[in-house]
Design a binder for these strands. Structure first.
Length: 554
RNA sequence: GCGCCCGUAGCUCAAUUGGAUAGAGCGUCAGCCUCCGGAGCUGAAGGCUACAGGUUCGAUUCCUGUCGGGCGCACCA
């Protein structure tokens, strides 16, 4: 709303100054300055276009300021500042009226339509079904789910998807490992296959098998039987954990579907038809170097089986064929070298260069007692998503993961996350929400309800500052979605919570003056809506009450 | 050896995709509850943004090099 008003107004200002040009207007950047002295919104448009106009930036800025239609806009002033910035200041009437608009919009406040109904698919987690989900998957799940919500909130048609690698060598290995454990269980010594899976969950899988059928499978050629059983149980377990964690997937896509439908063969044939394949060293190669890859890659092994690259190409082509115009993949840090390869593979097939976007979810270092927690899969001593939920809670885990930028390594302090006191930032925002809910309950007992129009306009600097902060929420959501940076939301929420606490300490909400109380309740309720909407984007609950668990006596 | 990510306050991290005086939390120190939730608030100290150049109106951000840390470099996925 504000964004559109500014954008339209500046187009008009350009016309009024005789400077309008679509290319120029396309360079428009609007931002909320961090320094409040620089106004509520700012643009560097004059600086951007001054050079080609061969005019001093400040003179261009003056001309634009003079042509900007303030009347009817959310703004009461536009100033030229610094090297040639245009700074806009909200009109008091706009701020006075904002709580009412926020309350009326409710859960929709913060959303926008900038996405223009663009269909996109976010593929995330996609962990191999060969073991429990680890902490990197937990981080990816938090980020991916948040990204889906952010894109939906900004007007995209967006789905989440989990790709199940159920067709590779690794699941065969899992099946063989389970078969070995089952054999050992019934007293037939059989070693784990080389590089087999050693974790305790493998023995658990074996123990849960129906014994008669498993014995029969063990005797004959039962490799696929063990594999399929193990696979289904692992997928079901991952699914249950992600459900509990609040990560939703519109679809669990099986790699085996691609093989079954002939999509893999078809992709291969098409690559061949495009002249992208050649045979060498007993294998079939794809010349990805033509599209910027470091070296060409094998797509069909000497054994006749495809490598992972081929189904991956077929999978992404399938995404495109299903109508998604854009695909965002979240990968772990160990796959970053593969980005260029897959991109090249898709280019070889003729997909749009901007179809695939890969985000790397960086690694997580778990700390306990200030020391790194061992994450060795081999030793079986890794922390799972389930462990994390049990230890610190899903809300807290998600908040910690989303607090930091996705592309940076993350130190996750388990001791801090477990602590239920003021040292733990995860509670700060929830606490502010619970506090507002409590105030509203307190007021309701005295027959007072929020009423934006009641009493005078906003009075104290603290309530004006709070409402200004709330006004920024839609822009923060838009920016977080556009930059694929969910961590901007927790940062904003912490600032908003702090702004609310300041307001609370300076402005008595429920007081002598009933009209003022009702109006301040409306400010508080608007803040509650923003906090609740922000937390919802993160997948974190917004509690009406918070009870601190009894401190353990040590 | 090659490639990718990173280096910002004592610690963990931001900095609106090149913007104005680099900010938060924790920790430290000093204050604030007869009243709506103290999981709170107010203030202080803390920085040559690893280092050296370059690009321009303007650099934590982009380019080059050096140093230091992490991760990759399969006919595994």
């Amino acid at each position: 709303m504000v964004w559109e008003a500014l954008s339209d107004g500046l187009a008009e200002a350009l016309r009024a100054a005789g400077l309008y040009d679509p290319a120029r207007f396309a360079r428009l950047e609007l931002a909320i300055p961090r320094e409040s002295a620089h106004g509520d919104w700012t643009t560097n448009l004059a600086l951007q276009i001054a050079k080609e106009l061969k005019r001093p930036p400040r003179a261009v800025a003056e001309a634009l300021a003079a042509g900007f239609p303030l009347a009817g806009s959310p703004f009461e002033a536009v100033e030229v500042a610094g090297a040639g910035f245009l700074n806009f200041r909200y009109a008091r009437a706009f701020l006075d009226g904002l709580p009412a608009r926020i309350i009326a919009a409710g859960g929709r406040f913060g959303g926008s339509q900038v996405g223009d109904d663009h269909a996109c698919l976010v593929e995330y987690v996609s962990a191999n079904p060969t073991g429990p989900l680890n902490v990197v998957s937990a981080r990816a799940a938090a980020v991916g789910a948040a990204l889906v919500r952010l894109l939906r909130a900004t007007g995209h048609r967006c789905d989440g998807e989990f790709y199940v690698n159920d067709a590779g060598t690794q699941v065969d290995l899992l099946g063989a490992s389970v078969a070995a454990r089952f054999a050992q269980r019934i007293g037939e010594p059989r070693p784990l296959p080389e590089a087999g899976y050693q974790g305790g969950y493998v023995a658990d899988l074996a123990a849960a098998l129906p014994e008669a059928e498993a014995r029969a499978a063990l005797g004959g050629d039962g490799a696929t039987w063990f594999r399929d059983r193990a696979l289904e149980r692992m997928v079901a377990a991952q699914r249950a954990d992600l459900d509990a964690y609040g990560a939703e997937f519109a679809r669990w896509f099986r790699e085996s579907e691609l093989h079954g439908s002939g999509a893999v063969d078809q992709a291969l044939a098409e690559l061949g038809a495009r002249g992208m394949l050649y045979d060498a060293e007993g294998a079939r190669w794809l010349s990805t170097t033509r599209f910027g890859d470091d070296k060409d890659r094998v797509v069909v092994r000497g054994t006749g089986l495809p490598t992972y690259l081929l189904p991956d190409i077929a999978y992404h082509r399938d995404k495109r064929a299903r109508g998604y115009r854009h695909a965002i993949d979240l990968w772990g840090p160990d796959h970053h070298a593969y980005v260029g390869t897959l991109m090249a593979g898709l280019a070889a097939l003729g997909l749009e260069p901007d179809f695939l976007e890969v985000l790397i979810v960086q690694q997580v270092n778990l700390l306990a007692g200030g020391q790194p927690v061992g994450m060795s899969k081999r030793a079986g001593e890794f922390i799972t998503l389930r462990d994390l939920m049990d230890e610190v809670g899903a809300d807290c885990a998600k908040f910690f993961f989303l607090m930091r930028s996705t592309s940076a390594h993350l130190d996750f302090d388990l001791d801090l996350a477990k602590r239920q006191n003021d040292e733990n930032p995860a509670y700060y925002v929830q606490y502010a929400h619970a506090r507002i809910a409590s105030i509203l309950r307190y007021a309701a007992e005295r027959g007072l309800a929020p009423e934006p129009g009641a009493g005078a306009a906003l009075e104290q600097p603290e309530e004006i500052a709070l409402v200004r902060r709330l006004a920024a929420f839609p822009e923060v959501v838009r920016g977080a979605a556009a930059a694929r940076e969910p961590h901007r939301i927790p940062a904003f929420l912490m600032e908003t919570a702090a702004e609310f606490h300041r307001f609370y300490h300076h402005c008595r909400v429920v007081g002598e003056d009933a009209a003022r109380s009702r109006r301040r309740l409306a400010v508080a309720e608007a803040a509650r809506v923003v906090l609740a909407n922000g937390l919802a984007l993160l997948g974190v609950s917004a509690p009406e009450r918070m009870e601190r668990a009894a401190e353990a006596v040590s």
